[in-house]
Amino acid sequence: MIRILIWILLAILLLPTPLMPIEPLVERSVYLTVEDGDRLIGGLTEENFRVSENGESRDFRLEEPELPVMITLLVEHSRMAAWYWDDITQSLSSFVRSAPDGHWYSLVTYAQTIEVASDFTRNRAEILDAWNRLGQPMWREVNTYDAIYETAEKLQLIGGRHVVVLIGSGIDTFSRRTLGEAQRKVEATGATIFGIGAGSALRGRLEMYLGTNARMELLRAQAFLQMLADKTGGQAFFPRFVTAFPNVMRSVLLMVGHQYRLIYDSQPRLDRPFQVLEVEAFVIEDDRRKDFTVRVRDGWREE
């Protein structure tokens, strides 16, 4: 009798998956970039990828990326930004200058609240025009968590391929939402987020004079932008020179242009709200596997 019980227990332990509550198969689309050092790798095929969800291998296929891309520039427009205003204007103007025609661009600004300064447009000039129209920032508060939460909420309602370029310090002063809420919202949306750390140049110059609290605040801000990028398959940049911003913005556009679209059969587990996704990219050279770095969202959250 005991022996039978042990066999049953062993069977449960060895075959856990079929007994876990799972949902039927759904197709999920993810965007990712593949890098080798500082080089973007293009031209890979399905044989060069492996996809796993919650630790289990998944079937997938590569498809043509959706076009046009909807790119939202989420830009800090607070009185606090006066300290790093050049970083913001440089980023914005160089982005508009380098951005290719054909995509949809929108400008959302944030301080106390978010404002849609320019709805989606193909005319990039309207973005600069809307920015110039804003005039002096009114609020000192920088509610970055609210801004990312509300922007993600808006984007969730619009289908298609989304990219958010957040240009701001990452500092949050008075948001209604917590960092955790902002993170969960981002995990639930499909947008790729790039963080452009405005104020990084100033921070580089003043680092030695900062007190512990200020350092902690800035580290937290930086970590927030990094988290957004890591969670969504984007990248966060913290340029130490104002002159670096144009190159950074070009890099963002280059990455968007080199994204792969991968569609995999997802089978989410109902016992966990977050489904972990892992993608490997590699090539076989001389019978040896060479792995690449993959920038892809780290999973999904069902709301």
């Binding site: 103007s93 309207e126 600069l128 025009d129 920015w131 110039n132 129209r133 005039g135 002096q136």
Partner: peptide, 20 residues
């Protein structure tokens, strides 16, 4: 009239903040 629109006029009237 501004290449991009009336906003540039606001910019001129209220200061071209974007360029400081």
């Amino acid at each position: 009239g501004g290449v991009a629109g009336i906003g540039t006029y606001y910019a001129l009237q209220y200061g071209f903040y974007g360029l400081g």
